[in-house]
Simulated assay, not measured.
Amino acid sequence: MVKIQDIFLKSKMQRKIWQEFLTDLNIINFSESEIDVIDETIGIFDEEKLLGTGSIARNVIKYVGTCNKDGNGAARFNQILTALEMRLMAKGISHYFVFTKPEYQKSFEYVGFQLLADSKFGVLMEKGKPNIQDFLSKFDRGNEKQKNASIVMNANPFTFGHRYLVEMAAAENNWVYVFVVSEDKSLFTFDERFELVKKGLSDLTNVTILLTSDYLVSHATFPAYFIKNSEDIVTYQTSLDARLFKKWFVPYFNISVRYLGEEPLSSTTEHYNQALKNELEPEVTVKIIPRKKFGNTVISATTVRENIKNNTVAEILPRVPETTYNYILSNLTAIRERTKNGN
């Protein structure tokens, strides 16, 4: 008898069956960073035989695969998607994403998913409401008669380095859109980071500060379970991030320049900067600005976080605006406690 039931990945036996099934479908990336975020996994079983599977990680559908040896793969795909969507709805989630191989794009389009961005290695799609058009419509469109620039920042926390980058953009352009990454995977929460950016830039009259929702996220957070090679994963994540920005945000806000901070301390981020430049130009000029320094060292949010962790907070004062410093000082105990949890 064919039925859909839960697969519990903490069970060694169930995970082995699940993993072997997906490996046969050429999905072989089962890193802990991909698995640990999964909330639920389901499978279609004929007695003990697994015929299809899919997982949910928050509002992302992933690890979808079905057996098509008997020609029923499409029907099983629809069954899996329907079951996953019902579970998402039961959680109150009416808008969700899927990251998948390019060859599966049509299959997801047939069940109502919209393409957001694609790359050689994978595609990002969404379904439900509010979608990206709804998200963008909440903001005023960029003035086509102006030169508009953009900066995407995590600001964990907001430093004089971030401030310097925005000042450069504000001096060289009519308007600057600062997008603060909304994902809460940082020491400082999104609400904290957003508020510190607002306060730290409050005197600049040609700057608008916006959230990113689920659309502009760190390149490291895109699921990549369907890609084998680690170098390919970085390329996929970067190109997807850039192409989503270019396809949706650039025309809506009439952005012609994107500013990035130079990254002498991180080869990964420097690679990301160069990849963004390759993806966005010539339509969008990419300006990589040398980092602001205090003394002989660049101002880095990483250093500020280390100071908080090591309880050497006085050392951060020359590196952050007074608004950031005062917030950290007022909430030091709670913030330091988060550092113990690996944030």
Rank of each mutant, 00 (worst) to 15 (best):
L88P: 07
K101N: 10
Q79V: 02
G92V: 06
G73V: 10
F77L: 07
A74V: 06
M86T: 06
A75I: 01
A90G: 13
S94C: 04
A74R: 12
F97D: 01
N78V: 06
T82E: 15
N78K: 13
A75D: 13
Q79N: 07
Y96H: 15
I80N: 04
G92D: 05
Y96A: 07
E85T: 04
N72T: 07
L81I: 15
K101Y: 08
I93N: 01
M89F: 12
A75G: 06
G71T: 00
G71P: 05
T82C: 09
N78R: 12
N72I: 01
G92I: 00
Y96T: 05
E103R: 14
R76P: 10
E103M: 13
H95L: 01
H95F: 12
T82H: 13
F99E: 08
A74T: 07
K91R: 14
G92W: 06
F77T: 11
A74L: 09
A83N: 12
I80G: 06
F97T: 09
N78T: 11
R76E: 04
P102D: 11
A74E: 09
F99N: 06
E103D: 15
R76F: 05
L81F: 03
P102V: 03
L84C: 07
T100E: 15
G92K: 00
Y104E: 13
E103V: 14
L81R: 00
A83V: 00
P102C: 06
I80E: 02
I80S: 04
S94I: 02
S94A: 00
G71E: 00
T100V: 11
F99L: 13
N72K: 12
G92A: 08
K101P: 06
A90V: 01
A83W: 05
G92H: 03
R87S: 01
F77Q: 08
F99H: 10
P102I: 08
I93M: 01
Y104H: 14
N78H: 11
Y104M: 13
N72G: 03
I80K: 06
M89P: 00
Q79C: 09
S94R: 07
Y96S: 12
T100C: 14
A83E: 15
F97Q: 07
H95M: 12
A83R: 03
I80C: 00
V98P: 12
Y96Q: 11
T82M: 03
I80H: 03
G73A: 10
L81T: 01
A83F: 02
A83Q: 13
K101S: 11
R87G: 07
A74P: 00
F97H: 03
